[in-house]
Design a protein around this nucleic acid. Structure first.
Lengths: 214, 214, 214, 214
DNA sequence: AATGAATGAGCATTCATTCAT
DNA sequence: TATGAATGAATGCTCATTCAT
């Protein structure tokens, strides 16, 4: 493929990410993608056989992105366990804020078919394996709940970050707060970490007990 | 409106709930709704001006449903505070399982417009006010974190229940477990409650400490 | 189906016969058919699922026509045997002249797929069975060649009539005559009958022999 | 034109013959021809201005072929007159079997435009003139009907051969025989020759009469 | 001479919506 | 109240043809 073609293909993919994340598979229009990419509609069919295939490539593209970013977690070590919840929660929160296409495409994908779910797994497993080891070590030193599996732990953190963005519109109403405001987000993050805290919480109750038992 | 008309309108609405929750606004077909409702397409336009309005009515209808069910919470009292997390989490989990149209329409709504968010608020406020009072009382007696607002507390519980269903397809891959299995769900519920526990957790650490200090 | 619908469907079919016979399946345009029929394009899809089905209906329609006209042959009796070749040849010649859509659609059909050939058989069998009986009787009285089957006899007559019209353009060049001219056609018919003649021919040779043997 | 160019042009033409004879002008795809010829699509436009012109060249090419083969007829002499019908009929039958592209392109041409008919004439005239002379001589000796012109005689033979192949699909149904079977073809050829026979026929009736009159 | 990249007009088909009865 | 008939504006996709290298 010539350089020009690579660029054209790239522009199409970028435009497609925006359009599909915006409107979903059924709502997205091939014409709109072509116009946004500044190319002839036919180019789309030359590079991506059809709308369906283009959508698959979009999903793969965005899902790969989260995997790439999670590679950062490989730098974490056992001594990061006490702050792992905060690190993960902030990471996901900021990722969703920076790349809103991700949660949107994830949501469309879950609503519309789930055909591309497997990509996500393939792409995240390395980082998750690493985090899992740290978590298990942390469980032994009492930093994490012994009865809470790593899967559930990660599930809850993911749910918080995803739900915060995915349901922002309805939540802002229900909770009477503007979730788009960074200050609100910071406050929510802190409160969630308090809610999930084991270490800090243990420390404080320990302190309390020491006072009592003394 | 005559009795026959009321029934026809009802049949259309039910069919529309199914179709819209299944395919979303853009994916849904007016023809399909008409056929499913066993009426002529034109009836839809007679009762609901257009597809857009019909979608609004569907959202209002399903959002009202969750409000009705949350009326149950009015029976709770201050002494239910210790189990409130469990009561709420199970309620939402089971509600999502029983009425999958809700989380689906909620997701579509958040993805596609968010125009109808206000309905949710109107409809849930009574129950939430009641729960809020119990929560605040619980905070004072140490059952709930003092630094965690009721809004955030409810947000986390909602997030868990919603995410469990809304992202089931991708999660089942990521977590390597079949979330559709009731046993898995029960396990996840228990682990989540452990993670969020304040009272129980205190109790158990207390017991531990007592054992140690004896 | 209401009267109006019957008429609309009929107009579409007529326009489709013209367009398909003119341009063949691939060359025909749905838009053109709709315009020619004076209806909205969508009506075509309402009455005939798609272009393919519409083509099938067109073929069935025109093939049925030839069957209907061949019903006339049922009036023939054994005493018509001496003129049967002329009757048949003229019938087919005039039919092709009157309904040029027939040989054209037959040609398209043979070139493009042959999927609808079975219709022709179903529709002509009654008349053919009748002619076959007369032919066999004629063979016994020496009117028809004993070594020439009815099938081949009919095949040759059909070939002449079909080829005269189907290859008119190229033939007019090859034969240096304007086949569209009725006088030329009459001449060709007469010559062909001479060529195929058994009875007349026998008569003349008989006459000759009588002259000789006398 | 360089040698390489000649070869490329030739490959394109061959591929085009196949594609056009298969699908006709409207059904044929320039892409398919390019791929089949193993060349870049643009080459087609370099050698043949456009699809239309390419089709013309294809027609000219295949029409020339029949002329070349008919050159064989120049070897025939007056003493071949008794078997001329058989020679011609078998020639055309076998030619159609060997080069199905001919009758197909001839049929497409007649259906779609007839613009290239003149080529056929130019190319066949020499052989036809020769056959015409033999035929006229044969008429004088009673081998051919005196009232049947050479043009009509040739027309009937051509019609039989063409129709046998061009309408094979529909005929196989109508006649209840598999015309693709060589044995069936042989039988049909024999019967047709019986039907057209003048000389043989005279001979046999003569024999019959001699038997009777004795 | 040859090729990959790009385009505009077209094409079968669908959809939300309105009309006539 | 209810239905069958009809429409205009898309919508995904293809095709012959041209441009740039």
């Amino acid at each position: 493929m010539q350089q020009r073609a690579v660029e054209t293909r790239g522009r199409i993919l970028e435009a497609a990410v925006r359009e599909f994340s915006d409107k979903g598979f059924h709502g997205a229009r091939v014409d709109v993608i072509a116009t946004a990419a500044g190319v002839n509609k036919q180019r789309i069919y030359a590079y991506f056989a059809n709308k369906e295939t283009l959508f698959s490539e979009v999903i793969r593209h965005i899902f790969t992105l989260i995997g790439d970013e999670e590679a950062l977690f490989l730098d974490l070590g056992d001594d990061d366990a006490p702050h792992m919840s905060e690190i993960l929660l902030r990471h996901y929160m900021f990722f969703h804020a920076r790349v809103p296409e991700f949660w949107r495409l994830l949501a469309w994908e879950n609503l519309e078919s789930g055909r591309h779910a497997h990509v996500l797994k393939d792409v995240r497993e390395t980082a998750f394996a690493h985090l899992r080891r740290i978590y298990h070590a942390g469980q032994r030193t009492g930093i994490f709940h012994e009865r809470v599996s790593f899967a559930t732990y990660l599930f809850v953190l993911s749910a918080i970050a995803f739900f915060y963005y995915a349901n922002q519109r309805t939540l802002s109403q229900t909770l009477n707060r503007d979730l788009a405001d960074p200050a609100v987000r910071e406050q929510v993050i802190r409160e969630c970490l308090s809610l999930l805290a084991t270490h800090d919480h243990l420390a404080s109750t320990e302190a309390m007990h020491q006072g009592v038992s003394r």
